[in-house]
Amino acid sequence: MTDPYAKLGELGLTLPEVVPPVASYVPAVQSGDQVFVSGQLPMVDGKLLATGKVGDGVSPEQAKELAERCALNALAAIDSLVGLEKVVKIVKVTGFVAAAEGFTAIPAVINGASELFGAVFGEAGRHARSAVGVAELPLGSPVEVEVIAEVSE
């Protein structure tokens, strides 16, 4: 398997600090050989990069970039708990999109997260996925991504 840190560097990305929880939960928890990452918002330095609904004020292209940021924040949570080098497989990704009425390109938005996992982990980054349109997300975020990863001992 490729070195995920090196792949991030090749992509011009660095792992951010773990986003502090905005409520009563932890960013990630390990159970057996799986790490469950809480829903990650597109936060940078404690600030949400955008608010609003995709298809009304937030473009699908911008939302895809925000989903990638959510995925990067999820990787930071995994890294802080067990280290990215222990990731065997990204198992499941669930993406939520605050969609304007009539906006149905939800899977294309969540591709921002899925494509990052593939770029970082190669075949081990291919995963099962759900992409769900919702009325509202925490703090008015346009997207949220949660992840389940298999890790080695």
Rank of each mutant, 00 (worst) to 15 (best):
A131C: 15
V82D: 01
I106G: 01
V22R: 11
H127E: 04
L49N: 05
D3G: 02
G112S: 13
E17S: 11
L11H: 02
G140E: 04
L66C: 09
S80R: 12
L116Q: 03
G55N: 00
V88Q: 10
A76R: 03
C70L: 08
P20K: 15
A119K: 13
V134C: 08
L11P: 04
G133K: 07
A149E: 09
L116R: 01
E144T: 11
T2R: 04
G122N: 01
D79H: 05
G118W: 03
V147A: 07
E65G: 03
V82Y: 03
L81V: 07
S130I: 11
S80Y: 07
S38T: 13
Q34L: 14
A108G: 06
S38L: 07
V88Y: 01
V35F: 01
S24E: 15
P16Q: 08
A71H: 07
A131V: 10
R129V: 14
V82L: 00
V22L: 11
G46V: 08
V35L: 04
A113H: 08
N111K: 13
L72V: 12
A135K: 14
S31F: 13
K64M: 08
L48G: 04
P42H: 08
V82C: 08
S38E: 09
L139A: 14
Y5N: 01
L15A: 03
T14A: 05
T104G: 11
